[in-house]
């Protein structure tokens, strides 16, 4: 069953057209990797799927669980189970990570018709997920992402994902900025969440991550289009020959 169906998606920011017709179908339980040169539109795709209003959809259609995704406000998409691990997680000074996450979890739970978690139950859940992610307690008491190192921010994103248990997780370069050990832990956390009901779209530049999170499909994005799709071996091939080997150039060079 298709959880996500993207058909001919086009989007622009200001006057600049970035996505030029994306077609992608993600079935329940599948993991899709998206690769592609800098500036090819990977983050834009992720943000459009999450509902960022900065980007204007100029064409195409997206169905999520059979529903018109583009008609939903971002918070409804989140409540319906879409989670975006940001390439650049945002700092929110003054709001504790713990408080933030509890508010998020309870709105999502409420949407799913589940009772809100009280402080105790929440703490127990958080402890369990913290262990999984090898998260430091102190990060939880600090304001959301504020002053976190690059790696800590990425780890925090996956930790939030583990707590929120989405149906569709979009990970935007979660591996960049992580040291080798952290990469292993974070990937381990992601793998622990793999299930037949949960789908993932993993944006990355490196095969390295895909050694841990083995994808079912790999797609290459260039100039706002998917120019090549294949199995996990496509990533290995890219690692070897680079995008040039596929006849794809960086945005800058292509011009």
């Amino acid at each position: 069953m298709a959880l996500l169906e993207i058909k001919g998606l086009e989007a622009k920011v200001g006057e600049r057209q970035i996505l030029n017709g994306i077609d992608l179908t993600v079935n329940a339980g599948e993991v899709h990797a998206i690769m592609g040169p800098n500036g090819s539109g990977k983050s834009t795709l992720a943000q459009v799927l999450a509902g960022r209003e900065l980007y204007q959809v100029t064409g195409g259609q997206v169905l999520y669980d059979g529903k018109d995704l583009l008609a939903m406000p971002p918070e409804d998409r989140a409540r319906e189970g879409i989670f975006l691990a940001f390439q650049y997680p945002v700092e929110i000074p003054g709001v504790s990570n713990m408080y933030f996450l509890k508010a998020a979890l309870n709105t999502v739970r409420k949407h799913r018709g589940l009772p809100e978690l009280d402080a105790m139950d929440f703490l127990n859940l958080v402890r369990e997920k913290m262990k999984l992610m090898e998260m430091e307690q102190t990060l939880l008491n600090r304001p959301v992402n504020t002053g976190f190192s690059g790696g800590e921010k990425k780890r925090n994103e996956i930790f939030q994902m583990a707590v929120l248990e989405p149906r569709l997780a979009i990970l935007d370069e979660t591996d960049s900025g992580l040291d080798i050990d952290a990469l292993r832990t974070v990937a381990g956390g992601v793998n622990a969440l793999r299930s037949p009901e949960r789908s993932m779209v993993v944006v990355t530049h490196y095969q390295r991550l895909l050694n841990y999170i083995v994808p079912d499909f790999v797609h290459v994005l260039s100039e706002g289009r998917i120019v090549k799709s294949g199995g996990k071996e496509l990533a290995l091939q890219l690692e070897e020959s680079g995008y040039a080997g596929l006849g794809i150039y960086d945005e800058g060079e292509a011009a």
Partner: peptide, 30 residues
């Protein structure tokens, strides 16, 4: 001096928190 940014609000909404709740949360934190 700080600003409540569109990026902060979007981050909250992406986690399921409505704009009003996000503003109130950030302002309260402040």
């Amino acid at each position: 001096t700080s600003k409540i940014g569109e990026d902060q609000i979007f981050y909250c909404r992406q986690r399921g928190i409505s704009t009003e709740d996000a503003v109130s949360m950030i302002v309260h934190g402040f």
